[in-house]
Amino acid sequence: MTSLVYKGSFEQVLNRKIQISADALSQEIGGETVILDLASSTYFGIDEIGTLIWQMMKAGKSLQAIHADILSQYDVDPAILEKDMLGFVEQLKSAGLVSVVQNQ
């Protein structure tokens, strides 16, 4: 199982919607999520914050909306959250689990 590490910057994808790959199946357990990518037959594990973001992505929210939601729930520096979120999306993208599909 591969762990996803967050890194990077935020602006490029802020207003875009994230499309989860049809090959990416996910299952939550105890606040964490396991993702199976059928295309590569690889399992990924994401932690609690990653799970929160993943679930909002699955619900069709844009990164901007996810960012706002998390800020309203957690006491976190917006800039750090932006950086972490972009890193997360980049990791998901490079693993083929998501794509950035459209401008909002």
Binding site: I29, I35, L36
Partner: peptide, 17 residues
């Protein structure tokens, strides 16, 4: 137990598919 629960989740995903 953490390992077992992640393995169970992995199994569930694949089995459900």
């Amino acid at each position: 137990l953490h390992k077992a629960s992640l393995e169970a989740a992995s199994w569930e995903l694949a089995h459900r598919h």
